[in-house]
Design a protein around this nucleic acid. Sequence first.
DNA 1: CGATAAAAATGACCGCGGTCGAGTTTTTCC
DNA 2: GGAAAAACTCGACCGCGGTCATTTTTATCG
Lengths: 213, 213
Amino acid sequence: MAGVRDQKKKQTRAAILKAAVKLFSRQGYEQTSIDQLARAAGIGKGTVYSYFQTKSEIFLAFCEEQLEFINRELAARSNPEAPLLQQLLTFFQGEFRFVSRNREFGRIFLRETVFPKDFTGERARQLDDKYIDILIPIFKQAQARGELRTDLELIVVTGHFYALYIMTVSAWYMGRLHSEEDVAMGMELLFEQALRGLAPIKAREAAAHGAGK
Amino acid sequence: MAGVRDQKKKQTRAAILKAAVKLFSRQGYEQTSIDQLARAAGIGKGTVYSYFQTKSEIFLAFCEEQLEFINRELAARSNPEAPLLQQLLTFFQGEFRFVSRNREFGRIFLRETVFPKDFTGERARQLDDKYIDILIPIFKQAQARGELRTDLELIVVTGHFYALYIMTVSAWYMGRLHSEEDVAMGMELLFEQALRGLAPIKAREAAAHGAGK
DNA sequence: CGATAAAAATGACCGCGGTCGAGTTTTTCC
DNA sequence: GGAAAAACTCGACCGCGGTCATTTTTATCG
């Protein structure tokens, strides 16, 4: 029927991804050749390219799975009542943990995500739509609690914090921040700076005290 | 003498870079092979690798020259009396112009700069030390004029704005911002948001009015 | 079922970035 | 000046990512 062929295609695609997870994890991205990947998936090299257009696309699919998982976990663990700063830190620090677990993966992933090739642009946009979906509700609640100005476009606010997150990670890759604690502290510092401007006037005094070191 | 050999080395290095400028500009980075580059510089392929460790290193050297030039120009053209927001926008918009002139160059450059490989880390750090050298004086003047809080580590402030710049450029690469004007507006929006928190209390009203559209 | 057309799998092949040992030039030292 | 050592140049070579003409599998229909 209509499904027979398509089903096999799904299976093959899954086999490739499974092999990718195994090999990438074991020997790293650069050290895994497409040929090797194909063998591990039980198919020929050329076949891989009828499922994915490029090697990095396979990698992105792999990362998406991982991130999906992590994001679900983070969402479940988050506390909607906590102060905004707290929630943001928890979220982004979780995100960073994924990156820091494997430096190389994270680098490739971020490079591709933050500065995508024109062709990968669509994928990248979907990816950080996920960020938006997660963060916007948090911001709305914060607005309701009076922790965040209500005259802002929340998508821009998302971009603002995401930017600071990226910068912190970048500092880590450049060797300016070393440990996970350094990163956490750097992020907190930047977030506080941002919040002082993002919080409505009434809340500013509180933010300055409560969040200030 | 001591200089004979060394001088020739300088010449060869320069020849490689010159060839790189020509070929990269004419046919793009990916489309230029090392072999081609070597021929154009009048040397063998292997020799190239005794001057640069990798292709992207050649590219970075090329970018550094360009940026050096652009930064000098921007510095000369800048007006130390102008409002902080104005100066920042001028600077980063100039920076962006370099990137937008050639999408591909900019992407590779930013990828390598923001998320450097461990080996390239040193180079990347030097590069954004340049940013620091340029921006810190601007911030100090702004502090003197009362436009910027004086209780901040200026290096973190630099990071903050640089982060927002990176984010804006990223949005451009992802196709969320299209024209140079879009980018300029997005940047201004983010910078204003940041400034509201960065400016000392007395200046906040002014910033909100003067900078608000 | 057998013939035929469409879809999918394949691996030889291409050009590339990067390596390496053999060959060449320069320096050093007597 | 000449011989040994050190520094430098080179292009054949390697494995890779990606392509494509060919072969193999599957669906369709008389």
